[in-house]
Computed example of a mutant assay.
Amino acid sequence: MSAETDARTGTAAGLAAGSPAVAGSGDSRIHNIGYRSYDGPRLGRAYARRSLYTQSLRGAYGLGRSAKSKVLPMILFGVMCLPAAIIVAVAVATNLKTLPLSYTGYALTTQAIIGLYLAAQAPQSVSRDLRFKSIPLYFSRPIERSDYVLAKFAAMTSALLILTGAPLVILYVGSLLAKMDFVEQTKGFGQGLVSVAVLSVLFGGLGLVVAALTPRRGFGVAGVIALLTISYGAVSVLQVIAMTADANSAVKWIGLFSPITLVDGVQTAFLGASTSFPGGSGPSTAFGVIYLLVVVALVLGSYAVLMRRYRKAGL
């Protein structure tokens, strides 16, 4: 009995001293591993959502990741800005009175670069989380499914807005350096920002949906490229055929079936931009309402599909 009493006394003393203690005989052990309660601030869902947004936005440009991850997004960003820099240099050197490329036409002209960027970064944003099963780690924190989807959606939209908005800033600053009309350039710059904002929200949602449908990044890249290029190619061919057949009204209806032509139609109808539709006849303001409704439906639909995707994944 004395030995047992001494063992218990030693155990209690060890725990009181905060050091590992052993009690009992055989393999039975009691260890003080030093658990302590957390008395710091509880930052909650809003902080977790902001952190996920910031991390996703930084990741879209390779920040905080390996040097190899920074190469492609930074190259595409540079290629996106290069034409604007060249236009500015020519405008300043030759004293041009207007820019040779409009603010609203810049993103449509460089749509291939935007498509490549989206195809590369949308899978990086969501496919890797699914593939490596890191999603449950997010939801072990005070964050819900809607927080995750909103943070990823907002981050991809912001990344695209930076990509498409930076060249417009270069054009605007260059036009002022070339002493072009301030009011005209400011108006055009504002219209361009609205146009690329619509493009960023639409493209960001569609890109994330395609990428979230598969945990394989390669499939996500191919899917995003196919969505943008095949739809635009098919719509462009059909519009030319309709124009050749004198079915001018059909040209506008066909334009509803491609993300690129949707943005073209919206900015033509509401921002006074020149259209790239065959014949140079874009949708009127009344018909543009249909284009705008389709854009809104696609954005909301993208959010709903993403929510369903993560619900189906058991999150």
Rank of each mutant, 00 (worst) to 15 (best):
L150A: 15
A178I: 03
V90Q: 09
L202Y: 14
F139H: 09
V295L: 11
A119R: 02
M243H: 15
G24S: 06
K179A: 14
L168R: 05
V289T: 15
A273Y: 06
A313D: 11
G64Q: 04
Y172V: 01
Q185R: 14
L137P: 02
G59D: 04
S195C: 13
L306M: 14
F219Q: 08
P123Y: 03
P142T: 11
T214V: 04
A151C: 09
A212G: 12
L306S: 09
A197Y: 10
Y103A: 03
A122G: 05
G218M: 08
F182V: 15
A3I: 00
L206K: 07
S236R: 10
S274C: 02
V198K: 02
P259I: 10
A46I: 14
L150R: 12
Q239C: 08
S231Q: 06
A250T: 07
L150I: 15
P283A: 13
Y303C: 12
A17Q: 13
T104I: 02
P100G: 04
L130Q: 11
G44H: 09
N248E: 15
Y310W: 13
Q191A: 03
L118I: 06
A166D: 02
D181F: 07
V194C: 09
K68S: 11
G14C: 11
V299K: 06
L238V: 08
V198I: 15
F270N: 09
S302P: 10
I225R: 00
S276G: 15
A286N: 12
A13V: 13
S249N: 15
D181G: 06
T109A: 13
A245K: 13
V183C: 03
L15F: 11
A67N: 04
G26S: 12
V198D: 06
A12L: 14
F270E: 09
M80H: 00
L118Q: 03
D129W: 01
M74Y: 01
G174L: 03
V201I: 14
G223R: 03
P41Q: 07
R309C: 08
V79N: 00
V79E: 00
K97A: 04
S231L: 10
A245N: 12
D129I: 07
S146A: 15
K70G: 03
D39W: 00
Y291V: 08
V149G: 10
A178L: 01
A222Q: 04
A89P: 00
Y103E: 02
A48H: 13
L262N: 10
G301L: 08
V299L: 12
D129V: 07
V210P: 01
G165N: 04
S302I: 05
V90W: 02
V221I: 13
L43Q: 08
K179E: 14
T98M: 00
A107T: 14
I254P: 04
I230K: 01
S231R: 05
A166F: 11
I260A: 12
M243R: 10
V235W: 07
L130A: 09
L177A: 14
S19M: 07
S276K: 05
T214N: 12
L271Q: 07
A112I: 11
A178S: 05
L116Y: 03
